[in-house]
């Protein structure tokens, strides 16, 4: 592990640290709004990782001069990841909106957006249904 290797890979590791912070928010917190914020952090970290693959050292943004007089000495970064991530960001906000709409509906049905509360309510409903079926079967089930 030379210093050069570490400097060349430091960016990737930092992206992964950010990604994992988002992941930890998703799995450890019970509040649905917070879970979605965590998912957003995760998503943006993936985007940054992807874009960093297209970066060329000493390069510039892949936009030519208007008159298309391209200086062959200028290095341009890889435009392909930019295109893919550009559309992914807008799709990401649209799907986030869909998730938030689900959260709103969950709140209206259950009166809560905490995972613990909802699991409790679900268990309650399940128990009630079971006892209902049980009495319908003559108490044998």
């Amino acid at each position: 592990m030379t210093l050069e290797f570490i400097l060349g890979h430091l960016n990737y590791w930092l992206f992964i640290i950010l990604m994992m912070t988002g992941f930890y928010i998703v799995v450890s917190r019970g509040n649905y709004v917070k879970k979605i914020v965590g998912l957003n952090i995760f998503q943006v970290s993936v985007f940054m990782f992807y874009i960093s693959i297209g970066k060329v050292q000493g390069g510039t943004a892949p936009i030519f001069p208007v008159d298309l007089n391209i200086d062959p000495n200028v290095v341009y970064s890889n435009p392909l990841p930019h295109v893919l991530i550009l559309t992914a960001i807008v799709v990401g906000v649209a799907t986030t909106a869909l998730g938030l709409a689900l959260v709103v509906r969950i709140r209206e049905e259950y009166g809560s957006i905490e995972e613990d509360d909802i699991l409790e309510i679900e268990q309650h409903i399940q128990a009630e249904e079971n006892s209902e079926h049980g009495s319908a079967m003559g108490g044998r089930a």
Partner: peptide
Amino acid sequence: DYSPGGGFQAGV
């Protein structure tokens, strides 16, 4: 076409 931008950014 000439500078950063396009349909996605403009729409947003």
